[in-house]
Structure formats: C-alpha cells, structure tokens
C-alpha cells in the first residue's frame, strides 16, 4: 500500500494512479478506479462468469451511499437480479458524499430499501459492529453462492475523517459532530471496548500497539518514499497488450528529450531503462 501511495517502482499500479488506488490480482482485488459506481455493474459481470465456472465463488463490490445515486448502481442491481448473479453489493453508508449529507442524497429508506424494489435479498447492518458485518457478509456469501442470487448489504456508519487530504470537512459539518462520533462510536473503538470487556486487550496493550504500529508505518513510509520511481518506459506500457508503433515513436521522443535535459526532468528519480 505504501509503495502504491508513493508511486514507486514496486507499486502494483506502476506509479500511474493517485494514492489509495490499489489492487492485487493475487488477492482477487480489482484495481480501484476513481470514477464512482463503475465497479458495480462490472462486479455483476464478474459474478456471472464465476457462476459459469461453478467453483462456489462469488463477487463482492464495495461502494458508498453517494455512488448508489449513479445510474451504474441501478443498472447493476437490475442486471444482477435478472441474470441471477452471485454478487454481494456492499454499501457503506457513512452519511456523507464529500460535503453532501445523505439527507440530500436520497429520500427513501436508505439504500437497503432499493434492494427490495429490484427483487434482491437485503441486509441492513450496524457498520460499526465488526462482528455483525462479518456475520452479515458470511451469510450473504452463503446465500449468493448457494442460490445464484445477488445480496445487498447496507452497513450504517459515520465518516469520521475528511473526504480526502484535500478536503476540510469543517466547511460543511460541525467539528463537534465528528468528535462525538470519534469518541462515542466507531468500528475501531467498538472492537477495542469489546476486546477489553473480554479481557483479551488492555489500555497498556493499546498504547503499546499504537506506538509500535506508528513506528512500523513511518518506517514503511520512509522506505517507500526513498525508493526510485518506475522506469520512464512504464508510462507507455500496458496501454495495449503490445506497444503499437505510434507509442514506440512517442517513447523515442521522450528519450531524446530526457537525454538532452536529464536534470530538468529529474531523470534520476526514476529507475533506469537501460
């Protein structure tokens, strides 16, 4: 994840996407794309193909309550229901799409009520309760795979962070509201309290874990930051399966330029193409 965020030569996405756009073929995790809701009908297609493979697998697709306003969401639910696809639509309803509160996003009973309209079995779950989320997802998977049918899960939560590092959410919601949720109820806090009640976790272990995790994160941060960027030719690969002549010519144009102006282009930040 750190490599992806620093666009270095080890990043799966080869430095091409913004941070937090990870993915992993090994982990069966489709690479994130910025446009909203585009992944939802795609997951239906994945699920259809998985159904044909008959290996007991299903697809699960995550999105927010804002993305559920996009046309792709509605197309996906209808396709999944009519084509009997083993897919789990997992909506994280955290109350905000950037600045837009869910009260301005929809007027019905959340996202869950839409599942019913498309003939899709639906679960609404407390998204701050990790065990409830686990149980709901497990049950949804069993149902989807056994019946070749989609399931919609709506997990209710609250977005305690800003939308992104370039967002300041105090411009559109009271800081007190955020503080309250941070202190009162969020998935991490809830799990911690549960573990403390079960006597499998303590304040001391919490403090120690926070400290050691912070150190590890900063180490990974520093290591990823130091690493060279991918080779410059990486800019032109993967556009197609093989590089057509016009892209080869464009790469040659870049090579000629950077050889004339290596310092200007900070060529040393990048791994060598040699």
């Amino acid at each position: 994840m750190m490599d992806q965020s620093f666009s270095n030569k080890n990043s799966h996405g080869k430095g091409r996407q913004m941070p937090i756009h990870y993915g992993s073929k090994k982990l069966n995790m489709a690479t994130i794309s910025s446009p909203l809701a585009t992944q939802i009908p795609q997951a239906v297609g994945n699920a259809y193909a998985l159904k044909r493979e008959a290996n007991g697998n299903c697809a699960i697709c995550y999105f927010g309550e804002g993305a559920a306003s996009e046309g792709d969401f509605h197309a996906a639910l209808n396709m999944a229901a009519t084509l009997k696809c083993p897919v789990i639509f997992y909506c994280r309803n955290n109350g905000y799409a950037i600045s837009t509160p869910s009260a301005e996003q929809y007027k019905g009973d959340g996202i869950a009520s839409r599942g019913e309209g498309y003939g899709i079995k639906t679960i609404r779950v407390d998204g701050n309760d990790i065990w409830a989320v686990y149980a709901a997802t497990k049950k949804a998977k069993k149902f989807a795979v056994e019946n070749n049918q989609p399931v919609l899960i709506e997990a209710m939560t609250y977005r305690v962070s800003h939308h992104s590092t370039s967002d300041d959410s105090s411009a559109y919601r009271p800081s007190k509201e955020v503080e309250d949720w941070t202190k009162r109820d969020n998935p991490i806090l809830r799990l911690r309290k549960y573990m403390e009640n079960q006597k499998i976790w303590s304040m001391e272990e919490e403090a120690e874990a926070l400290k050691s995790i912070k150190t590890r994160v900063l180490e990974a941060f520093a290591a990823a930051e130091k690493m060279k960027k991918p080779t410059i030719s990486t800019m032109f690969s993967d556009v197609y399966d093989n590089s057509p002549p016009h892209l080869q010519a464009q790469f040659e144009e870049v090579q000629a330029l950077i050889s004339k102006y290596p310092d200007y282009y900070k060529v040393n930040d990048f791994s060598s193409d040699l």
Binding site: S7, G15, R16, Q17, M18, K229, P230, I232, T234, M235, F236, V239, H246, L247, Q250, V254, L257, I258, K260, Y261, Y264, Y265, K266
Partner: peptide, 23 residues
C-alpha cells in the same frame, strides 16, 4: 499530450511542457 492515459508519476513526460514546446 501523448497517447496514454494521464499518468500520475510521469506527468512531466506526458505533458507538452516548456522543453517540448521549445524544441
């Protein structure tokens, strides 16, 4: 711009920048 998607870390090479326009 070159015929690739807009690439984050390669933006300086992708764009028709000062050096490319000058040349």
């Amino acid at each position: 711009g070159f015929d690739t998607p807009f690439p984050l870390i390669f933006e300086r090479f992708y764009l028709p920048d000062l050096a490319r326009c000058y040349e």
